[in-house]
Design a binder for these strands. Structure first.
Lengths: 316, 316
DNA sequence: ATGAAAGCGCTAACAC
DNA sequence: GTGTTAGCGCTTTCAT
């Protein structure tokens, strides 16, 4: 009977028939847990993200779950809050026994923690290439995409582009990379880089975008465009600009990053970078399952990059 | 050794010590799958929602995961797209073997499907009391909350309140219940109910809120307030009002429902109903775990309601 | 108080 | 080709 279920090579059609009928009759359904015990595979993968309340991660999770379902595995979601300790816990914790591998979008972990990523199970990192360690990761083209955003604004005649969402001193996180892209494009065009135009923001929530924009305005720095490092920051900033009755995009153009659903519905709707979220999800799940299906020992670790695209809307 | 782990009553302290040391030495960690097989419990619960890209469900999932973690179980999320077939699949499908119970937020299932909810595992419904069947469910006070929203607008002198998000003919879904609350409050105050003020909207996305508002405006019906049946609809409607340069809340006040994060950041920020999402999540998880922990046979099925609250912001 | 063993349901290997 | 069986790692019962 087991032979039938797992359709082994040599089974007489007549026997197969008989067994199948019996199975249907009794309403037999194989027990997943027992299978797991026997096979050592759970049929589940973990997805560890900062928090689902952040639109970007909710939409990412949506895509991941959808792709995973197509591939026949379920997704167990964990929230780390972007907190280093909880991220470590996600890597080491008991939950890892319930999954065959982990898609991990770290935020709190730093470069020094690279060694900790040498875990004993399939692991695929989402987001930036923060670590030197030999880990698969799927990332977006942060630098290039940020250049493209900057270039987009410059092409439309903007010359003083403020940046919202920098993380001072960071080099290899999203903020660092996007700032690098911004600088590179300015430099390439022989335009000056003015530090006063750069505003830090801690977490990338709307609230902090709003705060950052208020700061910028209160400083009295002159600017004619804003490059916000994600859409939530952009929407927060946008809200403040409109509060102060500054015309967008007339007086100030604004471009975001992520292309969350919401970007279509703000007023003005938000021009932004689509980082290929769906593609990221698909690539990541595929890679992870490939590792799970035996390519574990394969030493080749890769950086997989998804393609991006400027989405033109009303704000810039 | 098993006796030590499960701390049985009669173990000599010296033996316990010895075993514990050995455990530490070998780095032994109990195998979750084997435990599951033995105990018949997976340590996971399912959460089936329409889609995570909808803000309300993302935030609900956030809360559910957080509460579940506190209670020591993990959450396996499934998306149904609000589609009847996929909802049935969520109830019957193979995934049910991977969880001890299910939190289910149905959308496509109708009253006729009540019988299908007689499943052989712990099940707690989230959302409206659509079904007569003997199933636990955690719900919000839709009718009362809708009355409160209506009352709030009436108290501020609004007399012609448009409704966005009705589902024609529906009686027991969120749309039906909220419309019932709206009508009840009007009636209670002796005010007329004008059908022309009621606009249907299919899915409750921003897009459909925008469409509905355009329809309403194009019809030329006079109104001085809008009650949108959720925040996404409200934000879509708001966007159109602002496009047409209609002053909010001056000319038209608008109130939403759900209190999603975003409601704080629109311009104007959105007055809305907080349906007690966190409370819903907590009550639902607690109830489900209670069923899982042996209260299965208990015939008493309950409707648990969370409390709501009007959140006053700028839009009304 | 401790150790041994049966069995949860499955699959892969092996004997028929 | 088909039927039987050992054993995945745990817990619980039963001898000791």
């Amino acid at each position: 009977m087991s032979n039938v279920i797992n359709d082994h090579p040599h089974v007489a059609p007549t026997t197969r028939e008989k067994v199948l009928r019996a199975i249907a009759e009794v309403g037999y359904r194989p027990n997943h847990t027992a299978r797991s015990l026997r096979s050592g595979k759970t049929g589940a993968i973990g997805l560890a993200v900062p928090e689902l309340s952040l639109n970007y991660f909710a939409e990412l999770a949506d895509e991941v779950i959808t792709v995973a379902e197509d591939m026949g595995v379920v997704v167990l979601i964990e929230q780390t809050g972007g907190d280093r300790d909880r991220e470590l816990e996600a890597l080491a914790g008991a939950r890892r026994q319930m999954t065959d591998g982990l898609l991990f979008s770290p935020l709190g972990l730093g470069n020094d923690d690279a060694a900790l990523l040498n875990v004993g199970f399939p692991l695929v990192l989402l987001g930036e290439r923060i670590f030197d360690g030999p880990v698969d990761h799927v990332t977006m083209e942060n630098v290039d995409a940020a250049r493209a955003a900057t270039s987009y604004l410059l092409d439309r005649g903007r010359r003083r582009i403020a940046v919202v969402g920098a993380h001072e001193g960071e080099v290899i996180g999203s903020a660092g990379l996007r700032l690098e892209g911004y600088r590179a494009e300015l430099e390439c065009r022989g335009l000056p880089y003015d530090e006063r135009l750069i505003v830090d923001a801690g977490p990338w929530h709307r609230l902090h975008g709003a705060e950052a924009m208020r700061q910028l305005l209160d400083r009295g720095v002159d600017f004619d465009a804003v490059f916000a490092f994600n859409d939530e920051l952009a929407l927060g900033a946008l809200r403040v600009l409109r509060e102060r009755e500054i015309d967008v995009p007339g007086a100030v153009a604004i471009i975001g990053f992520d292309d969350i659903d919401e970007a279509q519905y703000s007023l003005p709707s938000l021009t932004t970078i689509d980082p290929g979220r769906r593609e990221i999800a698909r690539l990541a799940v595929e890679r992870l399952l490939w590792r799970i299906d035996g390519e574990q020992g394969n030493p080749e670790r890769r950086e997989i990059r998804s393609s991006y695209r400027v989405v033109e809307r009303e704000s810039a």
